[in-house]
Design a protein around this nucleic acid. Structure first.
Lengths: 346, 346
DNA sequence: TATTGGCACTCGATTCTACCGAGTGCCAAC
DNA sequence: GTTGGCACTCGGTAGAATCGAGTGCCAATA
């Protein structure tokens, strides 16, 4: 993709890289601008502060660093963070955290939803960032049962059970009064029709004009009428209170929280990042300005190449990338194991 | 309850009351300590500041007011707020808000859950406080359908549809391998057994020892095994980002958010207030210290005396009680109308 | 006896100044 | 290319001065 050395500011020589990485690491740690001397202390390249300063001028010109004001240390830009995470050797998880994850997955019981909900809490506790767990499984799951229940003459409820253990209901409103028998018959036909199919597969609906056929047609169309995105996914957000710690400035906190309230938006944010092949989106890299001081980490949860969900973390741009990445990946990995071979609901 | 005038600091003479109310109103408005002169301006009792000051000393001694420091105005205590809301004449809603609510309920479509979710957003927008909507309906609803679906030989899913349009699932784990036929038979029996019953009513389970009967028994017991509280309620929280605006001090914000994350806790908080016959709980009146700078407003949603839910608002103790109370009541009222006569799911 | 105007006093908030020091950019020397 | 030296910048902190809103108290008043 990148041309080659020439214009491409894609690569830095070893010393610049070391300096940049030192600055980023230090700033993540202290939240303070980093000066040339502290770089010397943490990374020991055998050079003087003056040399580091000279390099930092270059790094600033190339957009990796900025000075909050003259005569202060430097702070990484989004581009700086980007370089940092791109050149990160695989992070490791502390043994305590590994144990916590293992223990958690040994312990959890209950419906898929409960497990995922608790997983998102776990992930947030592990990292002290806000976590997002998205379940996309049942888009690909096969239907185990479809049943039409009538609430009153014109209102019915289509209840669909998927092979991943999720249950989905849809209101079906008829334009005519249907008898109990009609509904029961429609229910039977629906079940036969949809059994073993997925939301994506084509089915042959009856074209007759009787009430039963109408009900069947209406039900199938309601079931298929999936919203563009996010509507058929489940989202679990854990540790939203962490937002308060992660950012300074009430307004920023408010904006981030307000984004988190819109679950559809969170889903598309996370999936968008994944679609672009990234595992981290920093600052303005995802399109949402209110999140410009955030970084988002994502890790796909996939069984045999089939994506069944996403886990994500949202924190300040100066988040602890190695740990957070490791945690997200570990949890994703354990989720796969947990839901992998066996039936998902346990 | 109160003895009589003597010790009972329960009642205040007219002038003290006016002063207290003026102080509270002013402080709610400005968030600043209120001095004697501003009391004169807003409430015109024909007396001088000096007199007001004298009264305020009394009010302070009796615990209605405090001074943040010598030579500052006064700020209401929880007790002060309590007096204020207890002596509030019924607040009214602006015509714009009324219109907004009306329009909303004319417009909403979809499952109960969606309606309630959106209602909580509405309530939060109306008041600019965080809102809570709790659905307790299906505890009293009758069962329209119960179905057992098998995921694999030992794992089954009990899917129950209630008359209020909610659908609940429970995992049923068997200690033996059941055939498809067994499960189908058990499902049929379960449906016949549970149809028309509520979660509270007693049913006669088969005592036979065959697989089908075992499945039926296990299913019924799983369905009945309701958690002490909160587990069978649905909670919808809207506008949690408002927390960031409502409180100063990152730590307070964090704590409140962290409470809001625990939905069970929120349910019991809200129901507890309701059980105690209150419609407002101020500061330390509800038992949760992390919420000591919060006030919680609740309004029951009841059809024919049967509680089907609660709507609530959470804001700072200096919240706009009249408006917030009016909004909560109006929304509760409209919810009753919306779900009242007709079938709940529409 | 309740009310009031007058007055000294308190104390947080604001402003201003001085100053410290971390950190820079530049440059001449190595 | 690297370095030590140096003047310079500028945010942050501390202290002093000031302001003013608001109080508590008291003697005078109706």
């Amino acid at each position: 993709m990148a041309k080659r050395a020439n214009v491409a500011s894609d690569e830095l020589d070893a010393r610049k890289a070391t300096i940049l990485q030192a600055v980023v690491a230090e700033h993540i740690d202290t939240a303070q601008p980093v000066g040339s001397s502290s770089v010397i202390q943490s990374a020991d390249l055998g050079v003087s502060p003056a040399t580091v300063r000279a390099e930092m001028v270059t790094l600033e010109r190339e957009g990796y660093l900025v000075q909050p004001h003259t005569s202060a240390g430097r702070v990484p830009t989004d581009k700086g963070y980007r370089y940092f995470v791109d050149h990160l050797e695989a992070g490791v998880l502390g043994p305590a955290e590994q144990e916590q994850i293992k223990g958690f997955f040994k312990r959890v019981r209950g419906e898929v939803e409960d497990v995922l909900e608790q997983t998102s809490t776990l992930l947030s506790q592990l990292t002290s960032y806000t976590s997002v767990v998205v379940n996309t499984a049942h888009a690909h799951a096969t239907i185990l049962s479809a049943q039409l229940v009538n609430l009153d003459a014109r209102h019915h409820l289509l209840v669909t059970v998927f092979s991943d253990g999720t249950v989905v209901k849809h209101s079906v409103k008829a334009s005519f009064d249907a008898s109990h028998l009609d509904v029961a018959e429609a229910s039977k036909q629906l079940n036969a029709l949809l059994l073993g199919t997925t939301l994506e597969s084509r089915v042959q609906v009856p074209s007759r004009a009787d009430n039963v056929a109408k009900l069947v047609r209406e039900s199938v169309s309601v079931l298929r009428a999936e919203q563009p995105t996010g509507e058929d996914e489940q989202v679990f957000i854990g540790g939203s209170s962490r937002v308060a710690e992660s950012f300074d400035g009430v307004e920023t906190v408010r904006q981030v929280l307000s984004i988190l309230e819109q679950e559809l938006l969170v889903v598309s944010l996370v999936e968008d990042i994944l679609d672009r092949g990234l595992s981290v989106a920093i600052g303005s890299e995802h399109g949402y300005e209110p999140l410009s001081s955030c970084a988002v980490i994502v890790a796909p949860v996939a069984i045999d190449g089939e994506s069944i969900g996403v886990v994500g973390l949202l924190g300040p741009t100066r988040m602890k990338y190695p740990e957070a990445l490791a945690a997200a990946r570990a949890v994703s990995h354990h989720l796969v194991r947990h839901f992998g071979g066996e039936v998902e609901s346990e």
